[in-house]
Nucleic acid binder design. Sequence first.
DNA 1: TTGTTTTTGATTAAAATTGATTAAAAATGA
DNA 2: TCATTTTTAATCAATTTTAATCAAAAACAA
Lengths: 249, 249
Amino acid sequence: MLETERHEKILKLLKEKNTVKIHELVELTASSESTIRRDLTYLENRKFLKRVHGGAARLQGKLQEPSMIEKSSKNHQAKQKIAKFAVGLIEEGDSIYLDAGSTILEMIPHLPENIVVVTNGMTHLPLLLEKNIRTYLIGGFVKPSTKAIIGRDAWASLQHYRFDKCFMGVNGIHPHFGFTTPDQEEATIKELAISLSREAFILADDSKFTEVAFAKIADIEAATIITNELERDIEKQYEEKTVIKVVTS
Amino acid sequence: MLETERHEKILKLLKEKNTVKIHELVELTASSESTIRRDLTYLENRKFLKRVHGGAARLQGKLQEPSMIEKSSKNHQAKQKIAKFAVGLIEEGDSIYLDAGSTILEMIPHLPENIVVVTNGMTHLPLLLEKNIRTYLIGGFVKPSTKAIIGRDAWASLQHYRFDKCFMGVNGIHPHFGFTTPDQEEATIKELAISLSREAFILADDSKFTEVAFAKIADIEAATIITNELERDIEKQYEEKTVIKVVTS
DNA sequence: TTGTTTTTGATTAAAATTGATTAAAAATGA
DNA sequence: TCATTTTTAATCAATTTTAATCAAAAACAA
């Protein structure tokens, strides 16, 4: 049985019964106890359930459905591909900066183990720790909406590090206005992270191109762009300024 | 039957009947009397019911089903009282440091809104943000087991702040050896936090007294102790060295 | 195909939960 | 009141569950 299939079954049963025993799941899915245990840890890390002694319980905060649906959207497919490609650029022993944000989050499951990660995204932590990756969080103000760490202190805190590579998402990419994002404070952090890295990579699906958001992060020249399919004429506008990697399926 | 499952059944029956006998629950859940007793103690600690001779009764005040998300810890009751008292010391406009740890976590639901919080405990964030409290996280290495932020960088990051009050838990309190904790790196952070605060408070239930752990945080004189009931002679050993507040129920 | 990575299942020692047993405490009834 | 019965808390051994390893199997890539 496929891993995803098991996960779905587990969640389905959990939804019906509010609580499931490991043994029930072993029967239901005809897999070993070890596998079910791994599935449960996996699902718990992603906030789909709470593990309890002997099984798992549904969590009341029930943020359940939406993210499952989210994962099947086509936008998500693109993000996945881009993220996976980006991870391919990382080498063993690298120290990298991972920006907060959902695209970057997709990179984490594919990361190699023996690297050092610095991030400003609190939401990345559970998965990073699950993968046993040595992780540093920068300090500063916690932005309530996104749980990203920003502000003066974050800026100062980030100064302590140097990176082989950094990866980040943006809201707008424009030949003239460069990389942009709606929040000025976040832009400042991103800009600094880029300047502290030997190489910088911007992950963005095609919807971000020719868009401009409020706060400028950097010029196009400052980073390599990783994106999914892109019309040839748009691509041309950028390839004379920087490297642009188009991930083909 | 799963522990969680039993708890749900117990509460359900209690809701219907307003009062249940131990024997009824033994039958209902097909578990032993010992187990049911333990369940009742647990549920009473979390304020889900009141134990009475021979069974349990529904509590009048409020009956809360929603937050049945189980928190694990032994002396929940004592911690609650201590935490609540500690919050009473905070004044509007204060800037405070909240150490990582489960006792301190209990303070958060009771905190006033217009304060500024700095913390090294990632696990505190969801609750803090839910309460709309302005929160700063210090930067540094994320300790996988506890998700506390520690290390050199944490130390440097913490230096950026000053506090009106700081609150922390410890593992050992001893008249001669002072406050101690098992992890050297955590001790360093705690020590610094204390020195950055106008007033420092140690929250500890009675089990921590006369215990000594590996790494020293500070001398007894450095902080006010908040605890639950304490034998008079033990209390005496400390009260000549510092202020010790005993929270009586 | 071959070699490499990922997933799986079995094994084990450690940890947590359970149920039985006990002595102490609380309720009951004369 | 006191003796009797019921309930409780505390302890401990037995059982169950868990996390951690590791080798086999499967999936994948060259």
